[in-house]
């Protein structure tokens, strides 16, 4: 029964943190969630047998089921990998790791029209960032913006 309650506490804490603001808190929320799920995996092997699966021929009546332990090892390592990546995402934002950004999807726009000087091969879409731009005529002042940016 204690395992089930621990799982409940960890999952509840994890989900609560996950729904808060700020990327680091979301990451720690996911860490708690992963702890909870790892405990579920181990519980699935039968928590009444708790002997260590070591030595020549461990007695199946008292030794813990080794298969879920292998699953948990894999799950821990995978969630560790994703957690580090999420942490990196926390610090590659614009100002801080705040997640309540009100973006209009227009930030992905190509700010200025890119004219590749010589070559005919155009540059990829996200390449069209701050490259030096050769202005072609008085151009951007006439840009038509639909009113009220936020749809």
């Amino acid at each position: 029964m204690a395992i089930a309650l621990t799982v409940g506490v960890l999952v509840a804490g994890g989900v609560f943190m996950m729904l808060r603001r700020g990327m680091v808190r979301v990451v720690i929320g996911f860490m708690f969630l992963n702890h909870g799920v790892n405990l579920i995996i181990l519980a699935a092997g039968g928590a009444d047998r708790r002997g260590e699966a070591l030595g020549g021929s461990p007695d199946p009546a008292t030794t813990a089921d080794p298969l879920p332990q292998a699953f948990v090892l894999t799950a821990i390592v995978i969630s560790f990998a994703v957690t580090i990546y999420l942490l990196v995402l926390a610090v590659t934002g614009d100002a801080d790791d705040d997640t309540d950004l009100e973006l209009t999807g227009r930030e992905m726009e190509t700010p200025t029209f890119i004219e590749d000087a010589g070559g005919s091969t155009a540059l990829p879409a996200d390449e069209l960032g701050p490259r030096a731009v050769r202005r072609t005529g008085s151009h951007s002042s006439r840009r038509r913006r639909p009113p009220g940016g936020r749809p």
Partner: peptide, 29 residues
Amino acid sequence: AVLVGAGAAAATWLLTDRRALSPAGRYFL
């Protein structure tokens, strides 16, 4: 969060520890 936690706890309680050692587990040991 509380609802999800309760759900997880109930799932763990109801869906585990209700069978003997699995054949695969026995084979490994």
